[in-house]
């Protein structure tokens, strides 16, 4: 039997009406567990839309506090939240949108020694972190644990994302072998970012999470989607798994997680 209340049927009616989601898809969403890495520019829209969608359990991990410079794009937080833990602020906004969902705020920094223990409880990971060491750590851990995830990155007017199903589709390291040298690639805090770009990319990643859970449509697997919002040019580049990938290839050279390149993490421990 389908045990939605009348209120829930109203709340989720626009999902249920979709042929590719329907009652069954909404039940799957309610049983799903998604982890959002980073309660920032990408994590903000992700957290809000995942909660609104009725994803049953949503973890959100971030060790930062809300700063006034975040508010131009990190829409899960408000002016009153300045100085608060980002995950506590996000959790409050998520519960306000949808009290049905269980929100798990994790005020910690993902490291080699805690990531496997954290991600094992989730069906899908949405990476919205702000640094390369963590992006590679999320990739490697998800590949090793066999947990699908969405990669996302933004800068200035640009965004890029790909969805990884470990063992089936190209992983982040199939494309980018190792983190770029420190300071060779500017971050948003140095180069700036148009606030709405975070919303554009974060909602694409969220749509991928919802598609993965419900089985609707075709995922951005073996594909790097990138856009330049200054001209609104969108491009998809086809990718393939690389036999010599150091983590998902035939003879992986990365078989355990280390914090060697986790400079930020090491500093904050």
């Amino acid at each position: 039997m389908i045990d939605f209340t009348t209120e829930q049927l109203n709340r989720y009616s626009r999902h249920i009406l979709l042929k590719d989601v329907g009652v069954e898809g909404q039940v799957k969403l309610g049983r799903a567990r998604v982890l959002v890495v980073g309660a920032g520019g990408l994590g903000s829209p992700a957290a809000l839309y995942l909660a609104a969608a009725g994803v049953g359990t949503i973890g959100i991990v971030d060790n930062d506090q809300v700063d006034i410079s975040n508010l131009q794009r990190q829409i899960v937080h408000g002016t009153k939240d300045i100085g608060r833990s980002k995950v506590e602020s996000a959790a409050e906004a998520m519960r306000a949108i949808n009290p049905d969902v269980e929100v798990r705020p994790l005020a910690t920094m993902l490291c080699a020694d805690n990531i496997m223990e954290i991600i094992k409880d989730y069906d899908f990971i949405l990476d919205g972190c702000d640094n390369f060491p963590t992006k590679f750590l999320v990739n490697d851990a998800c590949v090793m644990a066999g947990i699908p995830f969405s990669h996302g990155g933004i800068l200035r007017f640009d965004g890029q994302t790909m969805t990884v199903i470990p063992g089936e589709s190209a992983c982040y390291r199939c494309v980018f072998r190792q983190p770029p040298p420190p300071d060779s690639v500017p971050t948003c805090s140095q180069a700036g970012v148009l606030g709405a770009i975070a919303g554009m990319l974060g909602t694409i990643q969220t749509a991928e999470a919802l598609k993965y859970i419900t089985g609707a449509g075709r995922l951005l697997t073996d594909t790097l989607l990138s856009f330049d919002a200054s001209n609104m040019d969108f491009r998809k580049v086809a990718l393939r798994r690389q036999d010599d990938c150091p983590v998902c290839g035939a003879r992986p050279t990365i078989t355990e997680l280390t914090d060697a390149e986790q400079t930020v993490c090491a500093l904050k421990k």
Partner: peptide, 14 residues
Amino acid sequence: CPMNMVYTKVALAE
């Protein structure tokens, strides 16, 4: 509309 369709889909799902 559209709740009549929602209820119909719920009934069909069962």
